[in-house]
Structures are given as structure tokens and as C-alpha cells.
Simulated scan of single mutants.
Amino acid sequence: MSADCFYPAQMGGPSNAIYWQAKALTMAGHDVTVVATSQSLPSSIQLDRWLTLDCGRVIYTKNPHFYLPIKHIRYGWQAMRTAEVVHVNSLFYPASLAWVFMGLLLRKPIVWSPHGELSPVALRFRPRLKRLLLNAFRLFRSFLYFHATSEAETAYIRQHFGVDAQVGEIPNTMELSSPVARVARPYLLFMGRLHPIKAIDRLLDALSTSPLFLNSEYSLIIAGPVADKAYSSFLHERVDTLKLSAKVTFPGPVYGEQKEQLYADARLLILPSHSENFGNVVIESLAQGTPVVASTNTPWQILETERAGRWVSNDTDPLRQAVDQFIAMPSEGYTLFRTRALKLARQRFDNRSNVMQWEQFYETVRKKTRDITY
């Protein structure tokens, strides 16, 4: 299994999603090997050494540069020679193409997870390079099996690789944290990378037009790492322009118990993104019983059907109305939302009870690959 960023690195949802998947498979008795880079790791992690962890055998490679992953590729070649299935995470990381070519040379079954990189919004970033790479990938698409986390991502894959592209649709699951003791506090929460794709500015605009929010005790906490310095500066400027300085705080990235407490104590998590292939923060919030408002650019319609939150446009008026609904909601109705949120997380997104989906998918890929003529 290849990962450009891998737990305990915290550079977006895939860092954790790949870890939880590997851990669930390891707990189910499978031999899992992960080759990851040293990107965004704490200094305590040993590099260029095979480590036996709860998610299998892992090596964090120290490369000359993140985009020059020489050791990542070399250790990948060594690992995949004995692998039954090669799983590549990320389409556009430089090592991914090398991994796929090496897997084809070894005639290994190859699963490829885009992790949201094929959404129209994501493809706007460095579009020329991505078009070039996609053209190269199409040359051997008949030998590939893609993994999608949602119906929308399946559609994106087939848009770029053909309607006959082989896709397994498996939503992200995770190791759910136990609910912590909640201390209800009057704040709304955004959790995630500070990047333009997250549309945090849309949330600020919506709240600036809400008399209910402006005249209440409620504030907004925007927690997460800076993934785009220009966008982070823009957000701070936008807060000042909208006269929200007394209402908005940026605590930076939060982890562990502090993160779970932040979810639990919040009135609401808001994910206003322009695009998400999944959105692990939604599950994390639901697992603490906190309802979620997610944009219709995310695959979270289930929030509406299970009445655990709202699924609305990230335009100013719909977003403001959804947030206002939860600020004004009577305690009895709000308690029901919290109960349903917790139930949804436990039943649908616990990695230990859903590992069979991965086992079946890998077995299907392995059997089909045996029948391919190279």
C-alpha cells in the first residue's frame, strides 16, 4: 500500500483513512505493508526503517524532496514483489505513476484511490500537468481497478477513464472514538485544512448575514492546518472586512483528546466545501453526537435522510438558513439530532464492522487479474 502522507501525519483526511483501513485489515488477520513518505511527521518517528505497528509493517521514507520520492519508489518496488494486491493512494503524486508501472511489470492486481483528485474543483489546480498525466494513465486503464468513496467519485472516475472503468465503491470508515463527556458551549465549528477548496469564505459570508448569529453568544472556531498560505491570509482579511473579529477564532490544528472535545462541545460542525470525495470530519463529528451541515458538493445526503444534519448549497442564503435552524432549535429537537448523529456513525462508519467490504473487493480484483492477458 502506497501513501504519500500517512498517520500520524495530519495533512488531510487520506492520512487517517488509509491508516484506519490498514489497521482494520491487520486486525482481521491480513498482512499489510505500507510505504509512506516522511511528509508532516512528528520528529519522533523513525525514518527509513521498517516498523511493526498496529496497522501492519510500515516504512516512512526520507526523500531528497517531497516531489522527488526516490526512496519511496525503491522501497515500494521491494514491497510489491511479494504483495498479492498493490494499492496506490493518490493519482498525481509523482511516485504513483512509478508504482503503477512497477505493478504492471510484476503483473500485480492494482487498486488506485484518487481521494477526491478527480473532482472538477480539484482539477483546476495545476490543470495542464494533470491533463498530461491523465492522458498517460488512460493507456493502461484496462489493467486498473479504481476505488471510489462515493457515487460522485465513481462518476468522476468513469468520466475520465471511460464508462467501463472498473470501480469499487467503498465509503471511508474509521476507528471511532468513544463519546467524551460533553460540555455544551455556544460555538460553531469548521474542522479541516485551510484551503480554497474548503470554501470557508462562503461560511464567513453566510454568518455575516445572520442577525441570529451576530446577536447571539455564538462564535465560529476554524480549526485546522494551513494548506494554502494565501488563502489563510485571505480568510483573516475577510474576517476583518466582515467585522467578525470578535466572533471568529483560528486555533490552528488540534489533535487527540482536544480534537474530540472540540467536536463534542460544539453546537454544529459545518463543511461548506466546493468539493469533497468524502469528508472524514463528518464522521468524527457524528461520532461525538454533533450534527453536521455539509454542502451539496459533498457526498453527505445521508445527513438529510437520517436526520443527523443538513445537506445544503454553500451559497450564502441556504447556508445561513441551515445554521440558523440549529442555533434556534429547541433543546428537545436538538437532542434528537445528537442521538441520530451518534447512531449513524456507529452503524455505518465503524471500520471494524465494515472491513469485509475491503476483503471482498481485493479478492474480486485478485481473481479478475488472473484472467487478464498482458
Rank of each mutant, 00 (worst) to 15 (best):
S219F: 00
S233A: 14
Y187I: 08
S210W: 08
H195V: 12
R202W: 03
A206I: 03
D205F: 13
R202G: 11
V239N: 02
P211A: 10
E217W: 00
P225Q: 13
L214Y: 02
S216D: 08
D201C: 04
Y218V: 04
L207W: 05
L235G: 05
L207S: 03
L207N: 04
S216V: 10
F234C: 01
F234R: 13
L203F: 08
K229N: 05
E217K: 14
Y187G: 06
L203N: 11
L220D: 07
G224K: 00
R238A: 06
D205C: 11
P225D: 05
M191R: 00
D201F: 03
E237H: 14
D201H: 15
G192Y: 06
S208A: 15
L189D: 02
Y218Q: 01
D201T: 04
L207V: 07
P225H: 07
S208Q: 04
V239P: 03
Y187V: 09
H236G: 00
L212K: 09
S219H: 11
S208G: 07
I221M: 10
A223V: 10
P225T: 07
G192W: 06
A227I: 00
P211K: 12
I222M: 10
H236Q: 13
N215E: 14
M191Y: 09
L214H: 02
S208F: 03
P196D: 11
G224D: 01
T209Q: 13
A227C: 00
Y187F: 15
S233R: 14
F190D: 04
